[in-house]
Write a protein that binds this DNA or RNA. Structure first.
Lengths: 168, 168
DNA sequence: ATAGGTGCAAAGCATTTGCCGCGGT
DNA sequence: ACCGCGGCAAATGCTTTGCACCTAT
């Protein structure tokens, strides 16, 4: 029988080790926080969650770690408007984001065709597509207009951003 | 016979007047710079061009004006990576941008279908699409592989970004 | 042992803002 | 005349960094 939870090496810690990164206590904690995150936290939020597990961590370290992991391709930086960078682990194939402009919640979705299309456009312009980004900003539909949608009319969302500041 | 060039009211000045904005000397200059711009300048660049026409302008005013015009829907803010906001006049229907990651040059292109597609996706997720953004980052193709393209193999580009700083 | 990591506080950058005199309408 | 505008410099907010100490490897 093996102890589960906090004791086990996190997915991201594994990736760090694989790339030969020195694993310090704070990196282990940050790696865990990132591995457990199911949303798109910004540095402040990561710092909050990390210090909750081990208070011997400074924001500077979170910034440094997050930058390092991004350079190593373990993390991806996102900009959903609001001035702060948000992070998510690189993994489960490309997906895109739709941001609820009223609540700040982020919905992920896939669009297999999209990347292919973008690649074609780039080629047509004489370029090889290296990367691309796309974000949708929307407002939840007031389901006044009859048309009943397939499933529950409240699609899964994730984290709120900020109470009500404008984007900049 | 009418004097042309600097003396005439610029396109953006017209828009400002139409929306009842008070037209000061500095706004007139900034409006002209924006009207004449065929690229996507950042605030620093706008400031440079504006002071070249009339030195009695401060960066603060450029920031204030650019923000005001964005709120009025006359300008659109862009983020091509690099930490500074870039601006372009709202006009000639939606188009997208492809950024040459080696030179920083920006190529504009259209994709009529795209917006429609994004709108559909949003609806499928239970949202009304309010806005969306998309940028492609690419590298000019080394035209080794035979396939001759239609026209000149050097598509039109515009402005360089910055000599060689990393995106952040 | 030793290259690299960390905390702390100061520095950096792009952008915003308070204050107050000045200029459009 | 009046309200908004612009200059200046200080303030902000996120992120980076210099320095001296500490710790994985």
């Amino acid at each position: 029988m093996v102890t589960v939870g906090e004791a086990m090496e996190s997915r991201i810690e594994r990736l760090c080790i694989d790339r030969g990164l020195k694993m310090t206590g704070q990196r282990r904690v940050i790696a865990r926080v990132l591995s457990d995150a199911e949303d798109h936290p910004d540095v402040e939020e990561l710092y909050r969650r990390a210090t909750a597990l081990d208070s011997r961590i400074s924001v500077a370290t979170v910034y440094r770690t997050v930058r390092l992991l991004e350079e190593k391709g373990i993390l991806e930086r996102r900009d959903f408007g609001g001035g702060r960078a948000r992070y998510e682990a690189t993994e489960h194939g490309h997906h895109y984001h739709l941001i609820d402009i009223d609540t700040g919640k982020v919905i992920e979705f896939e669009d297999a065709e999209h990347e292919h299309l973008m690649r074609q456009i780039a080629v047509r312009l004489g370029f090889d597509l290296v990367s691309h980004r796309m974000e949708l900003f929307g407002r939840r539909r007031s389901e006044v207009a009859g048309a009943p949608r397939t499933a529950s009319s409240a699609p899964p969302a994730d984290e709120p951003i900020d109470g009500g500041g404008k984007s900049r």
